[in-house]
Amino acid sequence: MTIETLSTTRSHGGTQSVCRHASDTTATDMSFAIFVPDHAEGAKLPVLWYLSGLTCTHANVMEKGEYRAACARHGVIFVAPDTSPRGEGVPDDPDSAWDFGLGAGFYVDATVEPWAKNYRMRSYIEDELPSLLLRHFPMADMTRQGISGHSMGGHGALTVALRTPDRFRSVSAFAPIVAPTQCPWGEKALGGYLGPDRALWTAYDACALIDGGARLPDLLVDQGDADTFLAEQLKTPLLEESCRKAGQKATIRMQPGYDHSYYFISTFMAEHVAWHAERLKRGR
Rank of each mutant, 00 (worst) to 15 (best):
L209F: 00
F35G: 15
S7N: 09
S52K: 04
R253C: 09
T5Y: 07
V221N: 03
R282W: 06
T28F: 00
Q145Y: 04
R122H: 13
G53S: 05
P217Q: 07
Q248G: 00
G186R: 00
L190G: 10
T164I: 03
C183S: 08
D82I: 08
R122S: 08
F137R: 03
D205T: 02
T202W: 01
Y262A: 06
A157L: 02
H260Q: 07
N118L: 06
G42T: 01
G195S: 08
V108T: 11
R279P: 10
S123Q: 10
L51S: 02
V18I: 15
Q16H: 14
V108H: 03
R167A: 01
T164W: 05
V18R: 14
A116W: 00
A246R: 04
A104K: 04
A72G: 11
A199H: 04
A27M: 12
F137L: 06
H150W: 02
V90L: 12
H39L: 09
S11V: 15
W98Q: 14
E240W: 06
E88R: 12
S148L: 03
S52W: 09
C19K: 13
P130Q: 07
F35R: 14
D95R: 12
Q233Y: 15
M62D: 12
G195V: 08
F137Q: 03
V108G: 00
A104M: 02
T143L: 08
K235I: 10
S172F: 01
P176L: 02
G224Y: 11
S131V: 07
H150C: 00
M62Q: 15
H21F: 09
